[in-house]
Amino acid sequence: MVICMFRLSCKSMMFRVISKGRVKSPWIFHLNTGSCNGCDIEIVAAFAPRYDLERFGCLLVGSPRHADVLLVTGPVTRQMLPRLIRVYEQIPEPKVVVAVGTCASSGSPFLGSEMVEGPVDRIIPVDVYVIGCPPRPEAIVKGVVTAVKSKFR
C-alpha cells in the first residue's frame, strides 16, 4: 500500500515537473497561409523588446521539428493547404495550434473566394482562436499562454 502510494506520488510529481517544463518553454513556429502580413508583423512585434514573448520561454524557431506551438495566420490559400497539413504533421506531439487573426479564425473578408480553403479549423484542429484584424501583440501573447496552459497542464 505504502509503496503504491509512494509510486503514485512519484508519478504525479514527475507529471507535474514535465507539465511545468512544457508550460514554461513553448517554442513557436509561425506559418503564413496567405495572410496580409498584419498578423505576421504583430507576431514578430510580440517578440520585440516592448512585449518580449521570450520572458515566457517562447522562442521563434525556424524548423517545425523543434516547435510546440503552431501559429497560423491567414485564410488558408489553395497553394498553402498541403503545406499547412505537412507542417502540422511534422511538429512532434504534444502540440497546440493557435489561429491568429480573424482570417485564420473565420476566413472573414476573404470568405467566398475560390482560392481560399476556408478557415484553419476546417483543416487542422485549432485550440485557441485569437480574434482581431490584426490582434494586438498582447492578445497574441495571451493566446499563446492560454493555449499552452490549457493543453499542457
Binding site: H30, N32, T33, N37, D40, V44, F47, L60, G62, R83
Partner: peptide
C-alpha cells in the same frame, strides 16, 4: 525563403511570407 524568418525566422523565422 520565408521573409522573416524568422524566424521571420526567421525567420525565419521572423516575417514569414511564402
Amino acid at each position: 525563403y520565408t521573409r522573416l524568418r524568422i524566424p521571420f525566422g526567421p525567420i525565419h523565422p521572423a516575417l514569414k511570407e511564402p
